[in-house]
Amino acid sequence: MKLTIVKYNAGNIQSVLYALERIGVEAVVTDDHAQIKEADKVIFPGVGEASSAMKYLKERGLDQVLQNLTQPVLGICLGMQLMCAYSEENDTPCLNIFDERVTKFRPSEAQEKIPQIGWNNIYDLKTELFNGVKENSYCYFVHGYHAALGSHNIATTNYIQPYSSALHKGNFYGVQFHPEKSAEVGEQILRNFCLGIK
């Protein structure tokens, strides 16, 4: 099994690599089109800002490479948001793999901090990405923007309002939380993606 992590101008690639190492999966980090296309599975990570990330992907033709992948792809955090249609973060058209829109959290009271930082529940879990993961398990989130609940929702989280904490369409999966930092639950989700999903 050949797993490729897409290299671009966004953080947390190292953390993903180490997390995979802990579950015994080797991965290559690359922005080479051929290596991404021929991988058995692709992880599209990301911590950063939407418009500069999209600009970087477009300049290198990685946007089209990602849109046309047919093997299982897992977007993480900003990676998942970039797979949506549009992000309100600096008014950015994204990859449009999922037709969901990404908007900023708007606090309803002073106690609600933006970004959301910390551990929150995931529920209404669907697809084999969550095999062996209990309803209401805790995952680690760091984000100020979120995807609305829509037709591709496979996990829901509640912060200010319910929103999509995971999305799925065909071979594409996306998670808003950081499985690479979500202790045993995150490791199970990474294991499901790397070793389970065909």
């Binding site: 190292q14 953390s15 180490y18 997390a19 190492e21 802990r22 680690y140 760091v142 950081h178 690479e180 930092k181 979500s182 202790a183 045993e184 995150g186 490791e187």
Partner: peptide
């Protein structure tokens, strides 16, 4: 630490 710790 990053190799061995699975939380932030």
């Amino acid at each position: 630490i990053a190799h061995h710790v699975n939380i932030p």
